[in-house]
Nucleic acid binder design. Structure first.
Length: 427
RNA sequence: GUGGGCGUAGUGUAGAGGUUAACACGCUAGGUUGUGGCCCUGGAGGCGAGGGUUCAAUUCCCUCCGCUCACCCCA
């Protein structure tokens, strides 16, 4: 019987780690530049947090959660997204007593029971940012800028920003009812799939992939025409702030997309999405929006907030597609090739070299040729050759693989070898 | 949940109803004294599982399992 990894999960092998390191490092750097601080929340939560926070009617809650009852009878769910947990932590730890807004970011695995396909798996990882406690559109612009800088610092090009305002819950009622009316009038022009959708979630008809529907959606009532007062002002200010960004980031631009809606219940006002211009099915790299209602929904004081989530696997797919160079990890500074009875001396030398902070690996005890090949495959900078001769004379041969094979006699002493290796340098 | 495609060494591929299933990369052992890469030679390792058709199935058929792509939905 062979064991296999569960469906929709992945082993991230050593050869792939440079991509992950690049993404983690960039995310960490950019978030820090914007004053966001890292938060880690548990991998699982009580199920009702997501039922309430994400929304009972959403697909995520309806059919995608990894839920189970633990031994004490509590209902537990592996987190399907990050925002609800961060907000729970904000309330639970009294972060509303810190200066507002509280800026936080996370990098963590998410779990959803779905059929895997390109860009979609059951365990995926997200980098997310949340700015909690400030209603000002300046924060909306900040989060959008952060997302832009993250993507461009990763080295990804040709990404577009789609933007929309969903308005506020009160005003949205009129909008949805007009939208419903509009699509119902054209119901006979809609494919069956979208007629069903119309009954379930009229907003979602807008972002249908069916070409017939798309044409209708273009002419449908627009959410931004239904916002007024403070909400409209918020939107207008946001747009002017985004226009300002263009002068700093030459490639930055945004497209107002009236068809952009959200699957989770907690969003209001600003929603946005970054996606490659040539994106296929599951192309969204980063998506977010304002979720002013959420903290109230899960039991906190009404607190405005905005944030985004970004799929790391999708980002890496795009990095590979665009052939972004992510660098390769260096090999060890030293591989020790031991011959004859020098095994014990080699092991001692390895320990001393590591104590001197020289990255050192012992070659497997095989023939010299095999050990040399091994050192080469490890991408070692240097080989220290240690046989009975060297142990007796107290002088080791140090060969610099990276410097074309130049060989030097060095006293058989960790500090001397360390000094030599450093002076030779690598590549 | 629905629909399409595909399952041959670790990876990528070739193959044919009939002897020992091929090639490349990778792994491993060597190429006369204790020196890597390039080159050369050898070795290990495989037809997803079960059933059916047939004298004979890895090849044809069915079922299952797995992978993959798309829809739904989403990062």
């Amino acid at each position: 019987m062979n064991f296999k990894r569960p469906r929709g999960t992945a082993d991230i092998l050593p050869e792939d780690q440079p991509y992950w390191a690049h993404v983690y490092a960039t995310a960490n750097k950019v978030a820090t530049q914007f004053g966001y601080r890292r938060i880690d929340t548990p991998t699982f939560e009580y199920t009702n947090l997501f039922q309430r926070g994400v929304g009972d009617e959403t697909d995520i809650v309806q059919k995608e959660m990894y839920s189970f009852e633990d031994h004490g009878g509590d209902n537990i769910t592996l987190r399907p997204e990050g925002t609800a947990s961060v907000c729970r932590a904000y309330i639970e730890n009294g972060l509303d007593n810190e200066p507002q807004p509280v800026r936080m970011f996370y990098m963590a695995p998410m779990f959803r029971y779905e059929r895997p396909q390109a860009g979609r798996v059951r365990q995926h990882h997200q980098f997310g940012c949340e700015a909690i406690g400030d209603p000002n559109p300046q924060v909306d612009a900040e989060v959008i800028e952060l997302g832009w800088k993250y993507i461009s610092d990763l080295g990804i090009k040709n990404v577009t920003l789609r933007l929309n305002s969903l308005g506020d819950p009160e005003g949205r009622f009129d909008y949805i009812s007009d939208l419903d009316k509009y699509f119902t009038e054209h119901a006979n022009e809609l494919p069956k799939l979208d007629r069903d959708r119309l009954k379930r979630a009229p907003l979602r008809v807008l972002d249908s992939k069916a070409i017939e529907t798309r044409a209708l959606a273009e002419a449908a009532p627009k959410s931004v025409d239904y916002i007024g007062g403070e909400t409209k002002e918020h939107w207008d200010i946001l747009l002017s702030l985004l226009d300002n960004l263009k002068s700093v980031y030459q490639d930055f631009d945004y497209n107002i997309d009236h068809r952009l809606v959200r699957g989770l219940d907690y969003y209001n006002r600003t929603v946005f999405e970054y996606e490659p211009v040539d994106a296929g099915g599951q192309g969204t790299l980063l998506a977010g929006g304002r979720y002013d209602p959420l903290i109230g929904i899960i039991g906190g004081q009404e607190t405005p907030a905005i944030g985004f989530g970004s799929g790391i696997e999708r980002m890496i797919l795009e990095i590979k597609k665009q052939e972004v160079l992510v660098g390769t990890p260096a090999g060890p500074d030293v591989v020790i090739v031991a011959l004859g009875g020098a095994g014990a001396a080699a092991a001692n030398l390895a320990t001393s070299l590591r104590a001197a902070n020289v990255a050192t690996v012992l070659a497997p005890s095989r023939s010299m040729k095999a050990q040399m090949r091994y050192a080469n495959k490890q991408n070692a900078s240097n080989v220290v050759i240690l046989g009975d001769r060297e142990v007796e004379s107290g002088v080791a041969s140090v060969k610099s693989l990276s410097q074309g094979g130049e060989q030097t006699e060095v006293a058989l002493d960790a500090n001397a070898i360390a000094a030599h290796v450093r002076s030779v340098g690598d590549r």
